[in-house]
Design a protein around this nucleic acid. Sequence first.
DNA 1: TCATTATTTCGATTATTCCAGAAATATAGT
DNA 2: ACTATATTTCTGGAATAATCGAAATAATGA
Lengths: 112, 112
Amino acid sequence: MEKLGNPTRLEVFHLLVRAGEDGLAVGDIQRHLGIPASTLSHHLAHLVAADLVQQVREGRVLRCRPNFARMNAVLAFLTEECCVGVGATADQGDGPTRGKGAVEEQVAGKRV
Amino acid sequence: MEKLGNPTRLEVFHLLVRAGEDGLAVGDIQRHLGIPASTLSHHLAHLVAADLVQQVREGRVLRCRPNFARMNAVLAFLTEECCVGVGATADQGDGPTRGKGAVEEQVAGKRV
DNA sequence: TCATTATTTCGATTATTCCAGAAATATAGT
DNA sequence: ACTATATTTCTGGAATAATCGAAATAATGA
């Protein structure tokens, strides 16, 4: 999730998500977003390191695909533990336990 | 989304999500995560500015609630436009249009 | 091998963000 | 008014990250 915190990087990843599972070549991304090649390469390296993007060489061009499984996992990190409670600190008891149904009221997701 | 890019801030927000809709007081967060008050306040200000957290004073303590609607909107920003295509650049035509069903194959979300 | 296109690595600069101590402010109780 | 608790603001320095030009590397085809 940290890697998506940079606006440029988010823009790159967002573009790849829009492109779909075949993704785009590095040069295509560059043409779409108009950022210098070195800067783009730098950001892509971050996304690849985070496993949010996978790269495969196709001749001279390097195709970048979004890793949807990883994206979903990253997003689920926030939503999965919704409303489970936070446990106790040294000097206090548990907080109030939510009734069943709290999660469903708060978390939305695209139905599949 | 940029605001969730900082690990500490993400930790704070994640804790609030776990806590559920009633959230936690600033002091509770501090006790749970063990970060200095000034640092925590700084991060909370960011989250409030991003409308990811709402604060309401209750006597001496300031209660921080996660804004689930905003959280869902932020996450949806990535998933909603999945596979819609990226349009054209100046020097090339449209990329291949995906068949229907591409979105559902890639994007998961907690069912509600 | 040479030329061309695609992309990365290097290196230096600039910009941003993070952090935490100390002081200030807010609220409530006595 | 005074004290205690809760939280923020101020401040400055340290750490990180972003940026991008230039040079290097990779792949292809003539």
